[in-house]
Design a protein around this nucleic acid. Structure first.
Lengths: 227, 227
DNA sequence: ACCAATATTCAACACCTGTTGAATTGGACC
DNA sequence: GGTCCAATTCAACAGGTGTTGAATATTGGT
């Protein structure tokens, strides 16, 4: 009778699949497939385990994604908050450049999170609503402070609305990371390699001239990101 | 015997469901649900017909979406091309404002198309690749010409890279249309009503100061969009 | 040596997706 | 009045999705 046929594959593996390994796999798949299209089966395949195991460690697909966020955002928020401290007396354009560099560091290889803080927040994604409260609002607050301090220090035009400027700065940086490398080769003969850095420099150059009190003041030299 | 029970519901309806009506429904659903999430069954429900009927008029879901694009883009491209004619001697900031207004006119109520020319081009969407060639490239070309003419006329700084400036101008306008009304109320107490127009004005103000040869020259008054 | 807790898989559920082939009806033409 | 074509629906297919309950193997403690 082959009816029960006790398969020998169940039970704990010799090397356990800890939740962090699952998060790694999830991050990779979310990055490649996008947020909605990433399936639990694909994540499990990547992690080398059964889809059901994910439910042993996480309550749902959404909880898995939230855990992913909670692994990344705290460090990002800390960096951003440090940058916004009023004791930082460097020129405002340099501080804004640092904002772009932080985005670059944390989001460059993670389209999944980019997609989230980009648009998937807006529609759908009901359970992620408080993410805005908890994570994005402090981030926005930090950047906004830099602009406000810039106004107070007489470097930024007082007519500039700090919140709008923050929106522009941050949103465009996401677009530069996201689509510029993909779109530039289609429109020009330029190779995609330097696209991101070229775009970032061109962007800060225009934005800074746009918000500076003295538009003719030269930009300080902008250091490249550490790779 | 209720076995055959010839239902009286088949055959042509008294009022035919012409393809244009299907396109209307498709546009509405694509707009509400986004590109990937919009299902043919939802579109059919909206149009008041059976999903299979869609396949009578269109070869596939992708063909349906392409037909939707072909219904919109030609007029948009015509408007954009007219705007870029070198005989238009109005101040460059006014012409750039018109670019924003055209985007506003054609994309304001159509998140489906926005999502497409935004990011879904990049990954997935294999069959839509030539859309970039056919539709987006001429659009980019027109805006780029405006910047180039601005440089030639001594209104725009010659160091500005026209292609980058085009990318910034157009991309940000999409973001303003897309997420600003949804995100602004979450971050501030401002109501979402005027968000788009406020954002557009703030954006052009900063961008123009950023690219103008004479950053202290005042912006001309920007007319509101005709609703 | 036993027992309990932990970690893992299997098999299934209910649902949704794009798509298709056959059946059916109404109207137009001859 | 019969015939053909265009328009529409029905029912199903094959595959994918998130999720769950039960079964099972390993490990650690006593």
């Amino acid at each position: 009778m082959p009816s029960p046929l006790p398969s020998r594959t169940r039970g704990p593996k010799p090397t356990k699949v800890d939740p962090d390994h699952l998060l790694d796999a999830a991050q990779a798949v979310f990055a490649e497939e996008g947020l909605r299209a990433a399936s639990l089966r694909a994540i499990a395949r990547r992690a080398g385990c059964d889809p059901a195991l994910i439910y042993y460690h996480f309550a749902s697909k959404e909880a898995l994604f939230l855990a992913l966020l909670n692994r990344r955002f705290p460090a990002l928020l800390r960096d951003m908050a440090r940058l916004a401290e009023p004791t930082d007396l460097r020129p405002t354009p340099l501080r804004l450049w640092d904002v772009l560099l932080i985005y670059h560091r944390y989001f460059k290889d993670d389209p999944g999170i980019r997609a989230l803080i980009r648009g998937e927040i807006v529609r759908g994604a009901e359970g992620l609503g408080h993410l805005i409260e908890d994570q994005i609002r402090p981030m926005v607050g930090s950047i906004r402070q830099i602009f406000e301090q810039g106004i107070a220090r007489g470097e930024v035009r007082p007519e500039v609305q700090p919140l709008m400027a923050t929106f522009f700065l941050a949103k465009m940086q996401l677009e530069i990371l996201d689509v510029l490398p993909a779109v530039l080769p289609l429109l020009t003969e330029l190779p995609p390699e330097g696209a991101v850095l070229t775009g970032m420099r061109a962007w800060l150059e225009i934005l800074w001239r746009g918000v500076a009190l003295d538009a003719s003041s030269p930009l300080p030299t902008l250091p490249s990101p550490l790779v």
